[in-house]
């Protein structure tokens, strides 16, 4: 009899195994009562879980009106406030700044147009940001993850379909239609080389809903991880949180992007050695390293994957049980026997 297939039963139950593996599991199940029993128990488990009643909100009857009110407010207030701020800047700050510059100038020489430009542009640039909509504490952090810090101040709600596309919206945009271009291929899990060849082309990774162009996302993430992004007020954990959010939100579409992301996560850990997100950054770096190796099967990618895996497993604070399991799986799938150093 073939070895037990316990690890594949969950995906088998969901019809999510590739054809070759599905066939193997089917053959095994015909001969193995033990695995049949586990499969049956998994099925019953799902039924039992579906039997749990859905939790109900306490005051759901007021939600629709509350959401509507917040939407209406977000459409109304910004324009008023914004025009007032803009007018105030133009009427007060700008003339004052120009007068002040003239008074402080050591020589009576008038500034050239080029010299005056940045001074005039600075308040205008600040004013270009719409005031932040008050959000719940829950939404603040979600926004931080979805929108890079450099653009988060522009996440002002707009009527649907209108206005400028924003990163926060991009994340929740509907998935791209089937057949959309995706450059990144993802190896089927645990399928040996020859079986993958038989099974046909590898499955596409999701063309993430983020429609920001890859180079743009990649370069801003790189800058963020390396610490070249503009510092944020408050520094410390806020920086760490913002950079983590930005890196997490940027899509990976190609093996080059996977390599870049792997290195960005390493840079993140060096930049924020005491970050509470350190372990997660390590795991995400490993995942990116595995994705790069999956795609091109390059020796140098494999070496880096192993090195990162070993580093993680020897981390001073010790790996979490789930992290260890995940890393061992990644290393195993990459062909590192045992997965452990």
């Amino acid at each position: 009899m073939t070895p037990h297939v316990r690890d594949h039963l969950s995906a088998f139950l969901d019809s999510e195994l590739p054809p070759t593996q599905r066939h193997e599991v089917t053959i095994h199940l015909e001969a193995c009562r033990e695995c049949q029993q586990v499969l049956d128990e998994l099925r019953r488990l799902d039924d039992l879980a579906r039997g749990l009643a859905a939790p109900l909100p306490a005051d759901s009857h007021v939600w629709p009106a509350r959401v509507r009110a917040r939407l209406a407010a977000s459409r109304r207030v910004p324009s008023r406030v914004w025009w007032a701020v803009a007018a105030l800047l133009v009427l007060t700050v700008l003339p004052w700044q120009l007068l002040r510059n003239r008074d402080l100038a050591p020589a009576p020489e008038p500034p050239t147009a080029r010299e005056a430009e940045p001074q005039a542009a600075a308040p205008a640039a600040r004013g270009d940001r719409a005031p932040g909509r008050p959000t719940t504490s829950a939404s603040n952090k979600s926004l931080a993850r979805e929108a890079p810090p450099s653009t988060s101040t522009r996440s002002q709600p707009a009527p649907p379909g209108g206005g400028t596309r924003r990163p926060a919206e991009d994340f929740v945009s509907p998935p791209a239609p089937a057949g959309g271009a995706t450059a990144y291929k993802y190896k089927e899990r645990r399928a040996p080389e020859d079986e993958r060849a038989k099974a046909g082309p590898a499955r596409d990774l999701p063309d993430s809903s983020v429609t920001r162009s890859a180079p743009e996302a990649s370069s801003s993430s790189q800058a963020a991880a390396a610490g070249t992004a503009p510092p944020r007020a408050g520094g410390g954990s806020t920086d760490d949180e913002a950079v983590f959010a930005e890196l997490s939100a940027s899509p990976i579409r190609t093996s080059d992007e996977a390599r870049a992301r792997r290195d960005q996560w390493t840079a993140f850990r060096r930049r924020f050695p005491g970050s509470s997100r350190g372990e997660r950054a390590e795991l995400l770096g490993l995942e990116a390293a595995a994705a790069a190796y999956d795609q091109d099967r390059r020796e140098d990618d494999l070496r880096k994957l192993k090195a990162l895996g070993e580093e993680y497993l020897k981390r001073p604070k010790g790996p979490s049980p789930e992290g260890r399991e995940e890393v061992e799986r990644l290393l195993r799938e990459a062909g590192t026997p045992g997965g452990l150093p």
Binding site: P57, W63, R66, V67, R70, L71, S74, T135, T136, S137, A138, S139, S142, P157, A158, P159, P160, G161, G162, R166, A168, E169, V172, S173, P174
Partner: peptide, 17 residues
């Protein structure tokens, strides 16, 4: 909080739905 925020976000992205 999350449910209400989800509806707000969905509305902002609704133009492309």
């Amino acid at each position: 909080d999350i449910a209400q925020e989800a509806f707000l976000r969905a509305y902002r992205a609704l133009g492309r739905f």
